[in-house]
Design a protein around this nucleic acid. Structure first.
Length: 660
RNA sequence: GCCGGUGUGGCGCAAUUGGUAGCGCACCUGUCUUGUAAACAGGGGGUUGUCGGUUCGAGUCCGAUCACCGGCUCCA
């Protein structure tokens, strides 16, 4: 007679027979794919122990999705080894919205290969293979996986799997090793992989709600010193509908791609003749850039910044003084010789601002002293990373440096933080979290950070306190600091939920010393100021790219290259409409009249495609009534609006920076 | 920088086994122009990213290079 066990199941006290499995408890509900036993994620087929707290894991929960995607990754690996038995396995964890698996293969995967692999996966899935769990000793695992060199390496590293490689904890954990066998319906073994599990009860649950998305090289264990494997990315969802929704989301992101929209809306381009990563703004993009810069410059001045200007090039010695050159020589443009001196394109503005500070004696009465400019900097970004406006080789930083006394530093940081947040809100971004980047204290990278422990601790705690006071979420980013000090960065979410790192605020105790900056204190002594770096948008180019994607090219009126487009119903009404537009133009509104010889419907089509915020239409009814008609971007309309009222609506939308 | 893919008129695409480049939009001209996403007709425009090679012949094959796309690494 098997004994009864007392358990807590899904919050209820229950008594079950010894030997009861998760499948016995939850198996009838097809949406339950795993369970937690005392908080530990486990396969359903495992027996539940007495006294345990057992909870079902639904396929659409965070854990459930991970199980689904991890199982899909296994099926992918099985398919790859079916097609190519020589393929060696790397790791294959679930990730946000999907999974990947790394393989060492002779021939990298081509796009056509993915289709074939999808088919092979579908076959495995349809067959309804089950995942069997088998505990193995390290030695047994080594024997069994003798032909899998990467798995062997992981076995050796398992005591700290998370450090072995990102995602490696999906394969091995702190405890004993397990191998999961994929088993055919007839009980024979199809395939197996070193894995922690848990997995789905059956491959069938993956259904047809999965897709392989792309492939590419990926360094083993994330280091470029290691060999490069071939990674395949895929996605898997509880239902075909969920998959479709995800693919639609990807399509939506593609439609917003700032490279594509920039071309379509004639905003900017990247001429080959100039070089990779170097952008030119066309007149329409120029309007956006100028509006942004004008506004941001004005706001800085209102907030107590002094607008300064510095050249694009300098003798290399300056960047030695600042300490940048030893660290960043290979990401700066190479030197040029001139009159026996070595010059460098500027990669950062701070050294030049420091020279403005030290151009004369400074008094404590002047502090905080804030220098701001749109500084053009050039960075030799590696060829594979240049990307539209978001990663360029020539860019404009909206860069400022505050020179303050040590006592003023906390308030200055708070001031900067609330200032950058208010600026971002003015541009229509309002969903933020903060990141606190600190130095690495161990490992290879620890050496790059300079300064004493005390300096780092003090600077970090000042930043952290200011960050906490905003009430925003604060995420730690160990090792993410610049070599000279910690930073807060503002991460903003765009209209479709993607986050972008925008503003940064950095506390620098290093450069003031290197430049010998000082001010005279009230008591007559000379003191060293603290320097606080801050970029509001990071780079103007990049921020424009972010805004294009955030707004999908449909900018709020104040930023729109053309704010009002007049479309006469027929040629006869062009003059009347132009009179209306002239009045707006007199008020500083950017207007255009479509006086082309297109027919009316074509003009409406063109107007829609141009994403102009206000389309004003005039025909007989409007002219007779001294009115105009609005057509908005969503296709809705308002007819017969008196001219004065129309002008007021347009002007208020612009001055209030409202989206329409 | 590394791995893979791609490069055809301004844009989006086509060109059978290598046989001397087509289409749509845009552009120009003309006839048109009356209420919300494409009027009609005609016309101009590309030595197929660049350089080199194979071949009687290259947009199609090979090599180099530049650029872009995806992925990795990096990102003061």
């Amino acid at each position: 007679m098997s004994a009864q066990l007392a358990l807590t199941i899904a919050g209820m006290q229950r008594s079950v027979q010894q030997g009861t499995t998760g499948t016995d408890l939850f198996g009838e509900d097809r949406t339950i794919v795993a369970m937690t036993v005392d908080g530990q994620l486990q396969d359903l087929f495992r027996e539940v122990p007495g006294g345990a707290v057992v909870e079902p894991v639904a396929i659409d929960s965070v854990d459930g999705l991970n199980v689904l995607r991890h199982s899909a990754a296994h099926v992918l690996a099985q398919a790859v080894q079916e097609v190519n038995p020589q393929a060696k396995l790397g790791i294959g964890p679930p990730i946000t919205d999907g999974f990947y698996y790394d393989f060492d293969v002779e021939q990298p995967f081509a796009p056509e290969d993915l289709k074939a692999l999808e088919k092979a996966m579908q076959k495995i899935i349809n067959e309804g293979q089950t995942f069997d769990r088998r505990a193995v000793t390290d030695d047994a695992a080594r024997d069994e996986l003798a032909s899998e060199p990467y798995k062997l390496e992981l076995i050796g590293l398992k005591s700290n799997a998370s450090e072995a490689a990102e995602g490696a904890e999906a394969e091995v954990g702190d405890g004993g090793l397990t191998i999961y066998d994929n088993v055919h319906k007839d009980g024979t073994r199809a395939w197996g992989d070193l894995c922690r599990g848990p997995h789905l009860p059956s491959t069938k649950l993956i259904g047809n709600a999965f897709k392989l998305l792309r492939s590419g090289g990926a360094y083993w264990r994330g280091s470029e010193k290691n060999p490069q494997l071939q990674r395949i990315y895929g996605t898997a969802w509880p239902s075909k509908t969920d998959l479709k929704a995800y693919l639609d989301r990807l399509a939506e992101a593609e439609k917003r791609d700032h490279r594509k929209l920039g071309r379509e809306l004639d905003l900017y381009s990247f001429p080959d003749e100039i070089g990779s990563g170097l952008v030119v703004f066309h007149p329409k993009g120029g309007v956006i850039k100028r509006e942004m810069e004008d506004y941001v410059r004005r706001r800085h001045i209102e907030e107590g910044f002094d607008y300064v200007g510095t050249p694009h090039i300098s003798k290399a010695g300056l960047f030695h003084t600042s300490g940048h050159l030893p660290y960043y020589a290979d990401t700066m443009f190479p030197p040029m010789e001139l009159e026996g001196a070595e010059y460098r394109l500027k990669a950062m503005n701070c050294p030049m601002h420091n020279l403005i500070f030290s151009s004369r004696g400074r008094s404590y009465r002047e502090l905080p002293l804030r220098f701001f400019e749109f500084g053009s900097v050039y960075r030799y970004e590696k060829s594979g990373v240049v990307h539209g406006l978001t990663r360029v080789r020539g860019m404009t930083q909206d860069d400022s440096h505050s020179y303050v006394t040590a006592e003023q530093a906390p308030d200055e940081i708070k001031h900067l933080l609330s200032f950058v947040l208010s600026l971002l809100r003015d541009f229509g971004l309002d969903d933020f979290y903060l990141e606190l980047s600190t130095r690495e204290t161990e490992g290879d990278k620890a050496a790059k950070f300079i300064g004493s422990n005390e300096q780092w601790e003090e600077a970090t705690s000042i930043l952290e306190r200011a960050a906490r006071e905003t009430g925003l979420d604060l995420v730690d980013d160990p090792g993410g600091a610049a070599f000279y000090g910690p930073k807060i960065s503002v991460q903003a979410k765009d209209a479709i939920g993607r986050t972008w790192q925008l503003s940064t605020i950095q506390y620098d105790f290093n450069q003031p010393e290197r430049f010998g900056l000082e001010y005279q204190a009230a008591d007559g002594s000379r003191k060293q100021p603290v320097m606080i770096h801050s970029a509001k948008f990071g780079s103007i180019e990049r921020f424009i790219g972010v805004l294009v994607e955030h707004y999908a090219g449909a900018f709020p009126a104040w930023l729109s290259p053309v704010q009002v487009l007049g479309v006469p119903v027929a040629e006869e009404y062009a003059d009347y409409l132009w009179d209306v537009l002239k009045q707006l133009k007199g008020n500083g509104v950017r207007v255009e009249l479509d006086d082309s010889d297109d027919r009316f419907p074509k003009k409406i089509r063109n107007a829609s495609k141009s994403k102009v915020p206000f389309v004003l239409i005039a025909g007989e009814d409007d002219r007779a009534g001294g009115a105009v008609s609005f057509r908005y971007r969503d296709g809705s309309q308002k007819n017969g609006i008196p001219i004065a009222q129309a002008a007021a609506e347009i002007l208020s939308a612009i001055t209030e920076r409202r989206q329409v």
